[in-house]
Computed example of a mutant assay.
Amino acid sequence: MTDHSESLFEAVGGLDALRRLSDTFYDAVLADPLLAPVFANFTRGHVEHVAVWLAEVFGGPAGFTAELGGHQSLLRAHLGLSITEEQRTRWMELMAAAVQKELPDDELLRRRVLEYFDWGTRIARDVSAAPVGENLGDPGPTPRWGWDGLI
């Protein structure tokens, strides 16, 4: 049983676990006919960037903000992708399978992680409708997600 007093970052198993989660997930995404076109410019470095983002969101080191441009950079990466609800739903299905495979066997932990992904993918879908170069304004700091959701 996971200690629910620790951060989600600690509970999932840290950066190594988030790397495995991202790697497993993107292997499935790139093989998926519905999602592969969204990731036409995918590089393996994306797996590391996602793991570092998730580490920060889940209460770990703030490496994404310090080294990769923070919240604004993440949102800008989705501009112009025109993500559909069907693609978002498929993304969630593949992530749920990766969570099941890679994260500890703790129902609450997995549910909280998937709740974050559901929340975040809705934002990504909405932002993706804007053209590349759109001024997003200041989205604020990188969001944090804990045992009770958005912190």
Rank of each mutant, 00 (worst) to 15 (best):
N41H: 14
L103P: 02
E10H: 15
W147N: 07
Q72N: 01
V47S: 00
Q100L: 09
V47N: 01
D138N: 14
L21V: 09
T65W: 00
F25S: 05
R110E: 02
G13R: 02
T142R: 02
G70C: 06
D3Y: 05
D105I: 01
L114F: 09
H46M: 14
L15N: 12
M95Y: 10
S5R: 13
L54G: 07
N135C: 01
E85I: 08
T2A: 02
L35Y: 12
P143S: 06
E86M: 05
A28V: 04
G69Q: 08
E134R: 15
G69A: 06
A124K: 10
D32V: 04
P37C: 05
G140F: 09
T89L: 07
Q87C: 03
V50W: 10
V113L: 00
G59A: 13
D138V: 08
D118I: 04
V113G: 00
D32E: 05
T89P: 00
E10Y: 09
E6K: 15
Q87P: 08
L34T: 14
L68Q: 11
S7W: 02
L79E: 10
G14I: 06
L114E: 10
K101W: 03
F25I: 12
G70K: 05
D3C: 03
P33D: 12
L81N: 03
P131K: 13
V38M: 11
P141N: 00
H78V: 05
S22Q: 13
E107D: 11
F42H: 15
G14K: 10
F25K: 08
A98L: 09
E67F: 14
G45Y: 11
P139F: 06
T89K: 04
G59S: 12
E134L: 12
G137W: 13
P37Y: 07
G149W: 14
T2E: 09
G120C: 10
L79P: 14
L79M: 06
Q72R: 13
L35K: 12
E85K: 10
V50S: 01
F25R: 05
E56K: 07
D27A: 14
V127Y: 01
W145Y: 15
V12F: 12
T84F: 11
G140I: 08
A40D: 15
R111A: 09
T142W: 00
A31D: 12
L68G: 00
G59M: 05
A129V: 13
N41K: 15
A97F: 05
